[in-house]
Design a protein around this nucleic acid. Structure first.
Lengths: 240, 240
DNA sequence: CGATCGATTGAGCCCTCTCAAGAGAGGTGG
DNA sequence: CCACCTCTCTTGAGAGGGCTCAATCGATCG
């Protein structure tokens, strides 16, 4: 399938404010493609030849340092834009995008971005909002890493993943894609050993239930309390 | 002074691609104002009534956590846009902007942003680039906090400040605005004590020279070496 | 010239990392 | 369908980087 049914994507944030005809015009430049689990959509340092919308599945964006260490930048959920390097003035992708499960992406040639924004200025505004939201999220992460201990950071990370990509199951909320201790470590600036120890402890306390690349939040509120805990016994601030 | 001389701001990134007449039209909505040292331009949580360009001086953007801890998000240099909450869909400022020295800002009512981007779509693209660049910088910071020790992070921070706002002096490069040990701690996720200890050590080794809210990089290359040092004796990767 | 704010430095501790070993789960090919 | 192999997860022991606590010094400003 090379063409795309516009009804599927009409309400995505990227296309807010476009009417049906305009949407069709934008979509006529796009192609859809299947990406197998564990395959890369693009790699850090590659020339940024395309930008993408995720239609189905989940994609992990991660950066590799000069020393070879990996840091997970974010997980992309269906409907989100990714690989917009071109729009922010980059020639090359600043991170690697890997499908963590079988996924379907919509892609545009980066070369058509200038023409698209000229015809549909809304695209620039919409993308600006998206990138702005990501900037807020990244700042939140910097603040957490600066002020919180590992336990609080990991609790926050799980709660965010569950909110973003949670699936209700009988025992609670399950993170809807495969995620390892190592992945969580790379999201929180920790190590897989520390993550494993903490998750084991939480499991024994009934807060979560987990297995191989699988985590179910059994008591989200309990995790919220954990995530608000202050290391030195100072009370968490009263909710205003 | 309420009106602004367009020649001063013609080459700012925000206005790239606008001709003189268009620039005048945009500037006719703007007012300039002086901000005294240590005064706030706006505060975190305030309604985002304006957005700004810094004409002169330096502004620190910082976030305060629920627990009262502060984290420095960035320092704004002359020519840069800040307070663009409105453009990224926020009703309130996500951080506090404080002049760290007497400064001059240009401000627009946030309410005129929609009209401005409609008339001058370039503004959205230009702002998208700016916000994208900040997102890259924020990710860099996350990566550093995840993978490097405090000493490397502080060395990087000083080198970036010097590159961004350095002023050549006889002994080296001076950071061109007042900055305390505490400020550096809040930029790097450390404490003022650790920063003080490290700067003292660097000063005794001749790498820097410092005083009250004043830092001169005397041997930037030495700092680069420090910033690339690996904690476990593994060689920094050869520059490809 | 006193007061306030920033910087320095010591002592001790603890959270989290590193190092190490092994067990369980799942996929795959014969 | 079973045996093997790989990848993920677990858990212990020990060390150390950087934090907390505490006290003092120095400089700038009103």
């Amino acid at each position: 399938m090379s063409t795309v049914d516009s009804s599927l994507v009409a309400q995505l944030p990227l296309f807010a404010g476009l009417d049906t005809a305009e949407l069709d015009a934008v979509l006529s430049d796009a192609r859809s493609a299947r990406v197998a689990k564990n395959a890369a959509v693009f790699r850090q340092g590659d020339e940024a030849l395309s930008f993408y919308v995720l239609l189905h599945g989940h994609v992990r964006a991660s950066k590799t340092t000069a020393g070879g260490e990996q840091v997970v930048v974010r997980y992309v959920s269906p409907g989100e834009t990714f690989g917009v390097a071109m729009a922010i003035g980059l020639q090359r992708y600043p991170a690697t995008a890997t499908a963590v499960e079988d996924s379907i992406v919509l892609s545009w040639p980066a070369s058509s971005w200038p023409r698209l924004v000229e015809r549909f200025p809304q695209l620039a505004s919409n993308t600006l909002r998206t990138v702005g939201t990501r900037l807020q999220e990244s700042h939140t992460r910097v603040v957490e890493m600066s002020t919180q201990q590992v336990e609080q950071r990991i609790a926050h990370a799980l709660l965010r993943l569950a909110k973003q990509s949670g699936r209700k199951v009988d025992n609670g909320v399950e993170i809807a894609f495969p995620i390892s201790r190592q992945d969580i470590a790379q999201m929180t600036g920790s190590t897989l050993h520390t993550v494993s120890r903490l998750l084991s402890s939480w499991e024994s306390r009934g807060l979560i239930e987990s297995g191989r690349q699988r985590i179910v939040l059994r008591d989200p509120h309990g995790l919220v309390l954990l995530s608000e805990q202050d290391p030195h016994g100072v009370e968490p601030p009263a909710k205003a």
